[in-house]
Structure formats: C-alpha cells, structure tokens
Design a protein around this nucleic acid. Structure first.
Length: 638
RNA sequence: GCCAACGUAGCUCAAUGGUAGAGCUCUGGUUUUGUAAACCAGGGGUUGACGGUUCGAAUCCGUCCGUUGGCUCCA
C-alpha cells in the first residue's frame, strides 16, 4: 500500500491506484470538498491523479497560493468553449494564465467585440452551472500529432512540447483542448470571473505572422475578491499621469504633434527642480556638463552606425541642399566634443553629462502619455575611461543611480542585463569582455538581475533599471551601456602613461532615462501629491473675507521673499469653496487668514491630506518649510 | 506599423436620422463669508477632418488624423 506523506509530516495509507481526491477524503470531508488540485512530490496535479507509489501530497484548496492560477487556467478553457459555441469558426491557439487573470489567443476572421463579452460570460455561467468534471486524457506525442493533424495551431503546440506524453482536457461533450493541466475537478469550482478586453496579438509574438484575437479575462475565488480587484483597477486609473497631468495643468498633447509633449508652467517647475537636484548630484560625483546640437549632418550618423542600425527610428531634414538628421541619441555629438582637443590618461575617468533632447520616430501605436513619446530629454552622460577602470566606473554609476532614485522615494525597481542583439557592431570578443564587466559590477554590488538575451543596444551590452506604473506596466528608467565600438569608429584616442595613443572605453548611461517619462512616473508614484520640494505650488493663502486682504498680501510677500512658490486667493468665494479648489489642485499647504490671524500675526495652516489645522507664527511656518524642502521631506506635518 | 474601441464647449458627460444640452471652469453682478464648492446672469460648438447616403446626419457609410487597450518595437 502506498504511503502518503502529508505536509504536517503524518503518514496516510491509501489503496494502490486510489486518487488524490480519495486521499483528501481520508484526511477529512471538508478538505475533500474544498480541494481543487494536489501537489504530488512538489508537482501540481489533478485531484483525479492515481497514487501508485509512496509520495508526498499537499491538497490545494482555494486558500493555497497556487489555487488562483489553476482556477484561472480552467476558466480560460471555459471561456474558450463559450467563444467556440458563439463563434463556431473560432480556432483556439494558446491560453495561458497571467498576473491577475488569463487570456486566450483565438484565430477568427470575424472580430470579437466588447459588446460580445456579456454573451460570452453568459455562456460561461451555463458551463459553470452544469458543474461537469474536467477529464484528462493522455497520449504519446505521435498519437497527438495524428489526432491534431488538421489543427495548425495545436499541432504547433504539440511540436513545441518538451514531454513525450501529452494530455487533453475535456469538460463537456463538445469541447476538448490540448493542455498540460492541472485543472480544477469540475467547472463548478470556478469563482467569479469577468472578460476584460480583447486585443490583437501576433501568432508567436512575431509581427510577420497572422494577427490573432486575444481575449483577456480575470477570475477570483469569490465575487468579493473580483470586486476588490476591479476596485483596485479603478483606483489605479485615478493615479494615471495622463489624467492628473490634465487635471493639474502640468502638460498636454495636441494633434499638431503626436508624441511631442507640451510642458506647461506647473510641469516646468517640477522639471526644473529635478534638474537642480540632478546637477548637484552629478557635480558631487565629478561630472562635467555639455550641450550638443539637435540637428547634425547625416554623414555623422553613417559613421556612428546609427544609419545602418537605427534609421527607421530617425527623423531627417535637409539644410542648404545637404542631408541632416535630428539626433536620436547624444553619443555622436559627445564624441565630437571629445575630439575637439587632445586627452591624457590623467583626465580619466572623464565623466561628461548632457541633458540632451532626442527625437525618435516611434510607431504610432506605442505612444503612451509621457511614458512613450517621440521627443524626450535624456539625462545622458558618457564616461571615457581605460579598460581597467570599467568596473569601478559602473559601480560608481550604480551608486549614483540608487542615490537619485532614493531621493524620490523609489525602492521598488528591478534590473535587467541585456546581451548581444542580432543587429550589432563590434567583435564577439568585445561583447564578451563588456558583458562580463557588467556582470562583475552587479555581482560586486550584490544586485539581483534578470538576463535579456539579445536585447542589448547595437553598440554594446547594457544594464537597465525598470520601474512599474500604477497599472503594473513596467517601464525602463536608467540604463548603463558599455561601448567599445563608437570610440573606434570616431577615432577617439587618449595618450597613455607610455606616451602611446590608445582608444578609450565609452560608457553610456542615463539615470532618469527620459525626463518626460520620469515626471510621468513621479506623478503616478505620488498620485499627483508632489512632495513639497517638487510641488509646482507649495503654499496658497486663503482669505476668509475681503477684510483681511491686506494682511494676506503681506503674508504672501513674506513667503515669496523666502522663495516659496505661493499664491493668494482673494476671490469673492466662501472659505469652503477656496479650500475645495485648492485641495483639487493638490497644493501641499493652505494658509487660512482671517481677522484672528491678522491680529496675532499668525497663519492657520491646513496640510494636504489632513483635516486638522494648526495656527502658528509666520516665521515658524517659514522655518519648517525651509527644512522640509532642504531635506526633500514628504511628511507635511508641522 | 498591426487588431479592436472611441473622438460632442476649456474639463466631465447627455442627446439612436428631425431646432446640439447639463454640471464644473470662465466673465459680470449680489453676498463679506471661519475650514472640502453661496446665489443670479452671461459667454462659450462648422459635433476631430474630408467625402458620401438622405428632404434632413453628432447619429448611417467610406477615407484620413488623433486617443485608448493590447501585439510587435523601445528610454
């Protein structure tokens, strides 16, 4: 009799061939009722899996961390059946689970529209109500190939499977799908679900292949969890920088220039504050700053390799009969500045920063607020150094990067290392050396990272810093790219100790990546409530009535003299209206002044996000804000 | 670039083939206000653009532009 070891270490004996479900029944009827699947020797299996040997078993219930994924996968099958029933011409391709849900790729010429979601959901409900069992059938690869001979997509899936035994799952007479499993025991075990959206998706993620229809859904154990998830999405949407940018008058877009942001006066305040901070940090780390032209002769871009590798993304123009390009990157200009005079090893490492405005012609469908634009300002820098200095310099950049991110309250980001792409310049040996240098630096700093094979820049491997937006989409901020090629192409040299001219190594790096994107991420990170040092308006003075206008003006002048960004609301409104309006503009401090305050030379301070007010002397308020701004404090409490 | 949806006043949204409307914002006035929106009046539109169907189009059809959600691509 097989011995079954349970998670608590106890041993259960079962008859040979008894299923995981039967084992669960022996443990307890409540457990058996809740059971969705079983983890047998660490592998997730169906409850119907027979037990023939001594095994370790853990019964998966809705409370288990693995439960959602199994249920969502089963839900994808149920949705697939519902879609096939409504659209008999639908051919199923691939239906995995994803974070918070699942999708199914479907080949169908007739478009599935949002209007169809309700009908699909209704069909799904019928399937769930029928509570029919998920039945697994196994066969060897050859058999499966024969069975699926006229199904191009499933055949492809079988060919890509690494196991020689394949399985099919059926949960009703008319539906069967190739699938590894496991699944919940029956369709009734599905919780609350909702079809979210439909979008095009290329087969195999390859733009040359047919575009399929990808239907996205979400599924949760209970209605309550589903509602909470939908509520979370709604809340996240309120943080969307595109919405807040409009509401707070920070920036806008116009049909006149798709992908080109118009930064408004209030947005510019944030922009300039970031630049001031950025400059001070770069000065501390020994950087110089330069500025190079936006339009440069096309010849330069042939030399740099951009013509061959980046032409599709570049804008071109013609000046006096000569061809010019709008720069998509700052490096060639930086190389020309380097070449403007001779250099010695004594200058190295030479760190040259540039807030460079670059233009990249992105595909129309990828534009996204400030996160993906066609014109942006990179906080670029190029470090020229000797091969021996590479690792230390990369470590230096990582330290600088973390110092800047922390100042903005970012702790949660992930790092990726990208290696040699198909389209590249430079020898394999160069690429190996460069990639190893990056790996060593990360190892020395004890930093976890993912590897993106073949995702590097055409001139060298790179480390990227990524962060997530309010809806969980990941965006790249900083990047460190090693480059042995560009200095060669531009004939950059330095004179070494031995009086021989040698080629320097060039490290490209950006910390914020793009000012536009970074400001967008800041808006979402703070939900529009900028910390005091970044807030476009730091203080607004609100009068109770006209009677205190003069006092309010005097307070305003005092704050202005202290370099606070402030305004005064003398409008003919009630104080409640003034507060509500100022609140909507997310101004950190409101100073309310009426006869009481005017008499005692004080202000009544109302802090954003706090109903309680505090009456203090003007000088005390100034001292407090001065400190908070200097320390980049996010807590407004005085 | 590809698939789908959407585009009405500065903003958020109504109007399903028959006179384009509301709230907020804005302007003028009344009120002189004590902690999240007082009252009255007024201004504001070639309904994204162009073409078509129709006696008549915001509404139906076509093309283009833009936006949104994805895919491919990328900071």
């Amino acid at each position: 009799m097989p011995k079954v070891t349970l998670p608590n270490g106890s041993i259960l004996e079962v008859e040979n061939g008894e299923t995981a479900k039967q084992a669960a029944e022996k443990i307890g009827p409540a457990l058996a009722k809740a059971a969705l699947a079983a983890k047998i020797n660490g592998e997730l299996k169906d409850l119907s899996t027979p037990i023939n040997n001594d095994v370790k078993i853990e019964i998966i219930t809705p409370k288990s961390s693995e439960a959602d994924e199994i249920m969502r996968h089963s839900c994808a099958h149920i949705m697939a059946e519902a879609i096939c029933k409504i659209f008999p011409a639908a051919k199923l391709v691939y239906g995995p689970t994803i974070e918070n849900g699942f999708y199914y790729d479907i080949d169908l010429d007739e478009p599935i529209r949002p209007d169809d979601f309700q009908r699909i959901e209704n069909e799904m409900l019928k399937i769930v109500k029928a509570d029919t069992p998920f039945v697994r059938t196994e066969m060897i690869k050859d058999e499966a190939l024969k069975k699926l001979a006229d199904d191009k997509y499933k055949l492809d899936n079988v060919k890509n499977a690494d196991s020689n035994t394949l399985s099919f799952y059926s949960h009703s007479e008319n539906f069967e799908d190739l699938c590894r499993g496991p699944h919940v025991p029956s369709t009734g075990k599905i919780g609350s679900f909702k079809i979210m959206s439909v979008a095009g998706a290329y087969w195999h993620g390859d733009a040359t292949q047919k575009m399929l229809q990808r239907v996205y859904g979400t599924c949760w154990q209970t209605k309550k969890e589903l509602d909470a998830y939908l509520e979370r999405l709604e809340e996240a949407k309120k943080r969307d920088h595109r919405l807040l940018g409009k509401q707070l008058d920070l920036f806008s877009f116009n049909q006149a220039g798709p992908g080109f942001a118009f930064i408004h006066a209030k947005g510019m305040v944030i922009w300039n504050e970031i630049i001031d901070f950025w400059r001070s940090i770069h000065d501390k780390y020994g950087y110089q700053e330069i500025r190079t032209p936006i339009i440069l002769n096309e010849e330069l871009w042939h030399k740099s390799g951009h013509w061959d590798n980046y032409k599709e993304n570049m804008y071109f123009t013609n000046v006096d009969g000569n061809n010019y390009a709008i720069k998509p990157m700052n490096c060639p200009g930086g190389c020309l500045v380097y070449k403007a005079r001779q250099h010695s090893y004594r200058e190295f490492p030479m760190k040259v920063a540039e807030l460079g405005l670059v233009h990249r012609h992105e595909a129309s469908g990828v534009m996204h607020g400030l996160f993906r634009v066609r014109q942006f300002t990179q906080d670029d820098a190029h470090i020229f150094c000797t091969p021996q200095q590479i690792e230390a310099e990369i470590i230096g950049v990582i330290e600088l990067t973390f110092e800047i991110y922390r100042a903005f309250g970012f702790e949660d980001f992930h790092i990726e290392l990208s290696t040699k792409p198909e389209k590249h310049i430079g020898s394999d040996e160069m690429w190996d050396t460069a990639t190893n240098a990056l790996k060593n630096a990360l190892k020395q700093k004890n930093i976890d990272y993912n590897i993106n094979e073949g995702d590097g820049a055409f001139y060298g491997p790179k480390i990227d810093f990524h962060i997530k937006d309010c809806l969980g989409r990941s965006w790249q901020l900083g990047t460190i790219q090693l480059d042995f090629s560009m200095p060669l192409r531009f004939g950059l040299v330095y004179t070494d100790k031995d009086n021989i001219e040698k080629t320097p190594v060039m490290i490209h790096r950006a910390v914020l990546g793009s000012f536009e994107r970074f400001i967008g991420i800041l808006i979402e990170h703070y939900a529009g409530n900028m910390p005091l040092w970044l807030a476009p308006q730091q203080v607004r003075i609100l009068t109770i009535s006209e009677k205190t206008n003069d006092y309010a003006k005097a307070v305003y002048q005092k704050l202005k003299d202290a370099n606070l960004r402030c305004s005064v609301d003398l409008s003919n409104e009630k104080i409640n209206a003034k507060i509500a309006k100022t609140h909507g503009e997310k101004v950190p401090y409101m100073l309310i002044v009426g006869p009481k305050e005017a008499e005692s030379n004080t202000v009544n301070v109302r802090m954003a996000g706090c109903q309680k007010t505090k009456t203090i002397a003007i000088d005390e308020f100034l001292r407090s804000t001065e400190n908070k701004i200097a320390d980049k404090e996010t807590d407004l409490q005085i």
